[in-house]
Design a protein around this nucleic acid. Structure first.
Length: 631
RNA sequence: GGUCCGCUAGCUCAGUUGGAUAGAGCAACUGCCUUCUAAGCAGUAGGUCUCAGGUUCGAAUCCUGAGCGGAUCACCA
């Protein structure tokens, strides 16, 4: 609509203005709420070109537009702002147009390129926590946004199912899990414990024993006992000890940390874990069996968590399958001069010309690092899906540098799709008490948190909900929808790239800028529509300022979808839905709908209500939030 | 130290390509259920947009510098 106005101005601009005109001379913007008008043109650029006052220019432009465009009924000039007023007919036909489209605001499905969205990359040694929730809800919502915007989307997850951390849980379970009466060790089946929680417990157990051993090692070193210490470690320890002398407290503490790391490498338990990893890489059958069994427990646990979260995946990538990928690409890149080799045989890329550093892409022993694997996996994915145009990686912003380098490497290797790939970088989630730290036990468990928000929603809904017509099952479903809706909205309403504070009390709030607030409005509209019954919502309609206000808000929905999708920001959509909800609630409070005596106005209000509810419902769905019919 | 990110009301956050008097929610205070769901609405109060320069008709927004906070710069992932 703005474009058509600009076209009108461009078409005849030269003739009647007597100057060359260009598109950027006509910046339009929505009219302020407290001023009369539907669209505002800033006339400063034109005034400057015409060398006249902004008011003169505004009047000239206003008269021209009113003459040329039939839906412009009037205009008002305030300072350098030309406020255009559209006719009622314009808004009526806009309402009709949007009401006629069942998928209003969404682009034609599968009309745009195929995109892969990777979100969630859990380790199989620990349960999911609050940070994963932000990651997963965000990735899911962006995937849905891309779909709504017309893209085909493949949702995927990378499972970090191998490595030393997994061996730690395995070893601890093997060593420390209690043996049951029937001779079995502790399992999810015989303990009733959720699989990921059980494995996580043994990971913690490992760390506990490791710390104890470290303490012992340090004690021995302190006493000058190096009988069980390797010569190289002894040498390093002595060097560190010397380095500490005469340093400030801070520097001493830093060196102490390094000594601790050194002591870790000298513990028996860590050595055993490393040996286990070697056995795993050598495909030792017993180790492999233990590994697949324990990972199986974790997946069963994750499935329960994912199900409650309401997320799904179209394709899975396991690190145990992909960790060897990428070496060929590195060797090829080396041959082509993209990479270079150091004397110790390690392979690097020099990115100093790009303002970055040198980065290792293959270890001196020929084994892969994270980067090697990511190079290989990316290429593999484009082979798996030949029509793929890009990959979106939903990963925390502590890996900004990694992805900058990854995309650069892929580009240098000659993959043109690399420039389409996008790191959906999100900020960390902090607690009111500070950062989440597993060592300090301040990590918020995903399952616990979901249960808490649903419990809170249950209590509130039982207190004030309109649920008398619902049976037990429907009620439980409703509590779930409200609790999870609140949690998801809380995590999604903030700009993804910003670090956010998670306040548990605010996350279960139902008032103000919250998921349940929007859900409530949706439920209330549905109540209206149920009572209105099936009526012929046809002409003639009548609308006033209050209705136009809402139609105007609905008209921007398609732009919001495309902007949110382009910016990878569910927050843009969340904030829009909130604004629309507020606008509707205000309308609801001041205008009778069912009780409106003018039938044409009553119909218009019902149609508007129905459309608002529809946008709220479909908008929330993109965010992974259900909109209940009643609550 | 190099690089990157953030800083807006007591707190949590919006703020479009630079535009009119910088907005919400929470917390506080005042009203409104004998009309459609009060999980609501209307209102009051709360600001040196971290600071200092610069660009211009106009800056929270762009540029430069400073301050504070965070991340990153591993043969970790």
């Amino acid at each position: 609509m703005e474009k058509s106005l600009i076209q009108v101005l461009l078409d005849k601009g030269h003739d009647w203005l007597g100057i060359e005109v260009s598109e950027d001379m006509f910046p339009f913007q929505p009219t302020r709420k407290d001023v009369r008008g539907d669209l505002t043109l800033m006339v400063f650029p034109v005034a400057k070109a015409l060398k006249c006052s902004p008011v003169t220019a505004a009047n000239a432009l206003g008269e021209h537009l009113q003459r040329e465009v039939d839906f412009i009924e009037a205009f008002e000039v305030m300072q350098g702002f030309l406020n255009l007023i559209f006719s009622k007919d314009y808004w009526l036909s806009s309402l009709q147009a949007l009401a006629a489209q069942p998928n209003y605001g969404f682009a034609e499905p599968d009309s745009k390129a195929l995109v892969m969205v990777e979100y969630a990359s859990p380790n199989t040694n620990k349960p999911l926590h609050l940070g994963h929730l932000r990651n997963i809800f965000l990735g899911y919502a962006v995937a849905e946004l891309k779909k709504a915007h017309g893209h085909s989307v493949i949702k995927t997850q990378v499972i970090n199912d191998r490595g030393i951390h997994i061996c730690k849980s395995m070893l601890a379970w093997q060593r420390f899990s209690p043996i049951q009466a029937n001779g079995e060790r502790e399992t999810p089946a015989n303990s009733g414990m959720k699989g990921d929680k059980l494995v996580g417990k043994y990971y913690v157990e490992f760390e506990k024993h490791l710390q104890e051993e470290v303490k012992e090692v340090l004690m021995r070193w302190n006493q000058g006992d190096f009988s069980t210490t390797s010569a190289s470690a002894q040498q390093k320890y002595l060097a560190f000890s010397q380095a500490k002398e005469g340093k400030e407290e801070k520097a001493q503490a830093a060196i102490d940390d390094k000594i601790k790391e050194l002591a870790k490498s000298e513990t028996e338990i860590l050595r055993e874990a490393q040996e286990m990893l070697v056995r795993w890489e050598g495909r030792d059958p017993e180790t492999y069996l233990l590994w697949s069994t324990m990972n199986g427990w974790v997946y069963q646990g994750f499935d329960i968590t994912y199900q409650r979260m309401g997320v799904d995946f179209d394709a899975l990538y396991y690190e145990s399958d992909t960790f060897l990928l990428g070496k060929d690409q590195v060797m090829e890149g080396l041959a082509r001069g993209v990479f270079f080799q150091k004397p110790d045989a390690s392979i690097w890329i020099d990115l100093t010309a790009e303002g970055l550093d040198e980065k290792l892409v293959l270890r001196s022993d020929g084994t892969a690092v994270y980067m090697t694997q990511d190079i290989g996996t990316a290429i593999e994915r484009f082979k798996d899906y030949p029509s793929l145009s890009s990959i979106v990686y939903t990963v925390g912003n502590e890996q900004d540098y990694h992805f900058k380098v990854l995309f650069l490497i892929l580009q240098k290797l000659g993959y043109s799709w690399a420039q389409n790939c996008h790191h959906l970088s999100y900020g960390m989630v902090d607690l009111p008490t500070g950062k989440m730290k597993s060592r300090e036990g301040t990590v918020v468990d995903a399952d616990d948190l979901m249960q808490e928000v649903v419990d809170a929603a249950t209590a509130m809904t039982q207190e004030r909900g309109q649920i008398s017509e619902l049976n037990e099952q429907e009620r439980n479903a409703l509590y779930e929808i409200i609790g999870m809706g609140g949690l998801k909205y809380f995590l999604l309403k903030v700009d993804p790239k910003k670090r956010m504070l998670f306040n548990p009390e605010e996350s279960i709030d139902l008032n103000g800028n919250t998921g349940p607030f929007i859900q409530y409005t949706h439920a209330r509209i549905n109540s209206l529509l149920r009572k209105a019954g099936h009526q012929s919502l046809k002409h003639p309609w009548a609308i006033e300022a209050a209705e136009i206000n809402l139609i105007k808000a609905m008209c921007t929905f398609p732009e919001v979808i495309s902007e949110a999708a382009d910016q990878y920001s569910p927050a843009v959509l969340a904030n829009y839905l909130y604004e629309l909800t507020k606008a509707y609630n205000s309308f609801y409070q001041q205008c009778p709908i069912l009780n409106e005596t003018n039938p044409a106005l009553r119909e218009a209000r019902l149609v508007i209500s129905k459309q608002v509810a529809d946008i709220l419902r479909r908008g929330l769905l993109i965010l992974g939030i259900s909109a209940p019919e009643r609550m």
